[in-house]
Amino acid sequence: MIKLFLSKVIKILLPILLLMGVLEVALRRIPNDYSIKYSHLNNNAGKLKTLVLGSSHFYRGVDPSKLPQPAYNAAMFSQSIDYDYKVLVKFEDELDNLENIILPISYFSLFTNLETGIEFWREKDYNIYYELGEFHSLELSKRNGFQNLIRVYNYYLKGESYVQVNELGWGKKSGVASRYELIESGVQAAERHTANNFDLLSDQLNYLKKIIDMAEKNQWKLYLITPPGYTTYTSRLSDRQLNKTLEISKKFDDKFGFVYYKNFLKADFLNASDYFDADHLNENGAEKFSNAVNSFLIENN
């Protein structure tokens, strides 16, 4: 009886599993920011002099062409410090010529992580494309089946690309936020980035210390930078969380000769036209900010 049951179930499920397998392979073969960045790091890690890590603040905000060359932007949306560390561990042995690591210490960096945030589903991208963590992550489970089919159709039949970054890993974005968008996005981002508690602080701090240890071991300079935000965002941040961020960052700057910290949160060389929302720079803003970061690197060289 049970064998008959199993054979019937397998007969019904097999075509579905096969189709799902084909779709999974098709989805994975569509180039995306993760696969592109992993591939670049895999092929060029040995040549890099400057590596940018972090979340969307640097993904959008740092143009590697303005930094000491060769440079690459390996930041991704919601990439938290624990994932910055994991990416570094993955490529540590290959980063033979690396001199500078640029790591954002955003307002939320020390208090949140990818796993517990609203973009937790991006963990799968690291599992699939960076080969970090769980082996059984599926592209299929990231979005609904209808969206997956559209993605396959758009790429294979219409030739659309899903890569948003340029050859240096920079995800530049043009456009200027309206006054209303700056206010609305500022309110939302400040609320989203303010932690309910500091439960994750010790974990994230631990990862930051591991990055510092790695930098010391490999004689890399580590630049910790608090990225800029528009006043509709910065004015709504919790003093307690912000002060803790600044205090910790300064402490590392004071303690280690190879760690440098700079706070650009209220950078006065940027104005409303440099943002596409209250905490992300547009293309123009990113160029200005990247130049400022480069100056900071030169100052400390």
């Binding site: 579905i16 799902m20 589903w121 489970s141 990231k142 979005r143 609904n144 089946g145 209808f146 969206q147 089919l149």
Partner: peptide, 11 residues
């Protein structure tokens, strides 16, 4: 199953 597949997304 097809409808579930088309509608299913993030867990």
């Amino acid at each position: 199953i097809l409808i579930i597949f088309l509608a299913a997304g993030k867990e």
